[in-house]
Simulated scan of single mutants.
Amino acid sequence: MSDRDRKPQFRRGGGKPFDKGRKSGRPPAWRDREADPDGPVILYGWHTVSAALANPQRQIRKLLLTENAARRLAEENIDPRVTPEIVRPHAIDQRLGPDAVHQGLLAEADPLPSPDIDALTQDGIVLVLDQITDPHNVGAIMRSAAAFSVKAIVTTARHSPEATGVLAKSASGALELVPLVTVQNLARALIALNDRGFLTVGLDSEGSEDLAAVALRQPLALVLGAEGKGLRQLTRETCGVVARLDMPGAIKSLNVSNAAVLALYIGASRLGLMA
């Protein structure tokens, strides 16, 4: 009997709910990272969990699977790495809520390590997020970052969603591919990037010139602000350049995740990173 045909050994049961964050009445993506920086993260959905299982840096604590999900993992020769608990879909619904599209997979895992600014390579593109709080937007930005081989995403420890739950699902596996650098003070982080030779370009609708006209170079840091508020004043002042994205249509602004992918396309094209 081949390894492909051998049935995996699973443990049945439901276990206790994973989400300590629900005690506060907030969704899992909003647990305070400073209060519990080493607490478990919740990953659910096929792409999110299968990417975590494929990442040797991700330590899996527990894994809940429906019978169909367990069968699919076995068919695709994906090692669950821990002994999963086989549960009914409703058991996962109870932990995540009825609106979460979990596809029969839920994992409790350790957070991934956060690299230091000084550890970033001095080539390619990094993204810097200035208090973007919507986990759907941050997850979509991470997915685009993975598509454009972004070296890292820099974000703040406060006023940003934790890398768990909705954010991880929206990132669709990109959380395992793009390092997330968490800093206490964004202005100081930008100064550190400037000192290390990065061209820091803040994106703002009131920027002095179109991003497509800016003389871009590597290493490049593209800085994105929250929807509505945009870049904070100190962030703008710390960026080497503040540029805008010119639009030909009647609507001149984009959702921040759409602005991110457009800026990445312009940056990667201008820097010759598309080949």
Rank of each mutant, 00 (worst) to 15 (best):
S208A: 14
S257M: 05
R188V: 04
P179A: 08
R196D: 11
M247H: 02
L203F: 05
G202S: 06
E237P: 00
Q218F: 07
Q184H: 14
L186C: 03
L193Y: 05
A187W: 01
L203K: 13
L180V: 13
A226I: 04
E209F: 03
K229E: 14
R236N: 00
T182G: 01
G207R: 07
V201C: 08
A174G: 02
V181H: 00
A174C: 05
T238P: 00
A221F: 13
L254A: 04
E176Y: 02
L222E: 04
N185W: 02
D246M: 10
L222W: 04
V223L: 02
G225L: 06
L180A: 12
A215N: 14
M247E: 01
L220K: 12
L175W: 10
G197M: 06
G228W: 04
G249Q: 05
G207P: 04
G230N: 04
R217E: 14
L180T: 07
V201P: 01
T182K: 12
T182M: 12
V214T: 14
M247T: 05
P219L: 06
V201N: 11
T238Q: 14
T238N: 09
V214L: 15
L180C: 09
L254F: 03
T238H: 11
E237V: 07
Q218A: 15
F198V: 08
L177T: 03
R217I: 00
E209A: 09
M247F: 06
P248S: 06
Q218S: 15
G225Y: 13
Q184M: 14
E176D: 15
A215W: 03
R196I: 01
A221N: 06
S257G: 06
R196Y: 09
G230P: 03
G249I: 06
L216H: 00
R188M: 11
A226L: 03
R244H: 08
V214I: 15
G207W: 06
L254G: 05
V178Y: 08
T200Y: 08
E209G: 02
